[in-house]
Amino acid sequence: MVNFNGSLVSNTESKLTLENRGYKYGDALFETLKVVNGKIFFWEDHYFRLMASMRILRMDIPMNFTMEFLEAEILKTVEANNLIDSSARVRLNIDRGEGGKYLPSEDAEINFNIVTEFHDNPFYTIAADTTYIVDLYKDYFMAPGLLSGVKSNNKAIQVIGSIYAKENDFDNCLILNTNKSVIEALNGNLFLVKGDKIKTPPLEDGCLKGVMRKQVLEILSKDVNLFVEEASISPFELQKADELFVTNVIKGIVPITRYRKKSYGNEFAQKVVTKLNAKLRLTS
């Protein structure tokens, strides 16, 4: 079952029209959520990121788009798909409706739809023997700036980058901005560990304002023995790092095991995962 503007319908009944602006122009936003046993992980952070993104794209936010309303609609959809007592991956999509060319018509109304699927791991784990090989994706570059960090439906670089990774037997690729700084992975934020120094690219470089990125930064900020900074990362720093890892809400923390000729461990990432799961238990 799919939730379309509050109505639960079957997949076959939920088709968007050819005039939908999300389809025609990518005039849409989305949030990917992890829901476990009826609890949306980090829902408040997702919600405020969504509202901020709608304002950046100058979308008129409907009066009923409260945090409580959207949460209830998400859980209603999860329950309708018999996933309320398990783990689910949920996509909440917001589009600007229909009408207009590049300039939306004045009567275009905001739509939302929610789709769910089963997810097999309720908590975050790192398998000790898993390999995760990455390389740089250099065919196209992201423009630095906050607009690049909006989670919109315009994901051409991520799509063709993922195809490139598959064709070259990589598990993921790292994206560069037009200043040739490494800003993120195709599907998550990047963290670099070198001794007691932890770096992640700043939002101004064009990386996604990731919800899991925020959680990890909050966890790291509580350790007085670490020096944590949001600073640009050059490709040359990657091979000098002790660890590299990717973060997103669905998988949590994914350690990179190899970049070109350099191999990495995951000892630090394992410690962060332990603290992350402890944080979730405390807030559940």
Rank of each mutant, 00 (worst) to 15 (best):
K214V: 05
S232Y: 10
I253C: 02
V35S: 04
I198Y: 05
G97L: 07
D60H: 15
L18M: 15
G38Y: 03
V224F: 13
G38H: 05
P122T: 00
E106N: 11
M54C: 09
T125D: 07
L176Y: 05
N172L: 12
Y137Q: 02
V90C: 00
R89A: 09
A165W: 09
I126L: 03
E79P: 04
T77Q: 02
L186R: 00
I250G: 01
F112C: 03
T257C: 06
A28R: 05
I40E: 00
F65T: 03
Y264S: 01
L103A: 12
N225L: 11
I110R: 02
A278N: 10
P104N: 04
T274L: 13
T200L: 07
T77D: 04
M54I: 09
I160C: 05
I114K: 04
K166W: 13
E243F: 04
R58F: 11
V35L: 06
A143C: 14
I126F: 03
L83A: 01
D135H: 09
I114A: 06
Y137H: 00
I114N: 02
F42H: 08
K76Y: 05
M212F: 03
E167V: 11
S148F: 11
N248G: 01
L190T: 01
D60F: 14
L174P: 03
A108S: 10
G99R: 08
A88Y: 03
T12L: 14
M142N: 13
F170C: 04
Y23R: 09
K155R: 15
S232N: 11
T116Q: 03
G99A: 08
E204I: 13
V249E: 01
T116H: 04
A108T: 02
A143R: 14
T66N: 06
K271Q: 09
G38R: 05
N82Y: 10
N113V: 08
K39T: 07
T178G: 03
N11W: 14
T200S: 02
A231Q: 13
L146Y: 12
K101S: 11
K39F: 08
D139F: 15
L238Q: 00
L136E: 01
P235W: 07
D205N: 07
Q215D: 00
E13T: 06
D242G: 01
Y164H: 13
N225H: 10
K279F: 12
R281Y: 14
S14R: 09
M59R: 02
H119S: 09
D45W: 15
F236Y: 15
E204T: 14
I219L: 08
L226E: 01
K101A: 14
N179I: 09
E73R: 07
A127M: 12
L220K: 07
K275S: 14
T257D: 00
K279R: 14
K262A: 07
S232E: 06
Y47H: 09
A231W: 11
K24I: 12
A80T: 03
T130M: 12
K180T: 07
I74A: 04
D45Q: 14
V9K: 10
S105W: 13
A156M: 15
K138L: 11
I40S: 02
S148M: 10
V273R: 04
A127L: 13
R281L: 13
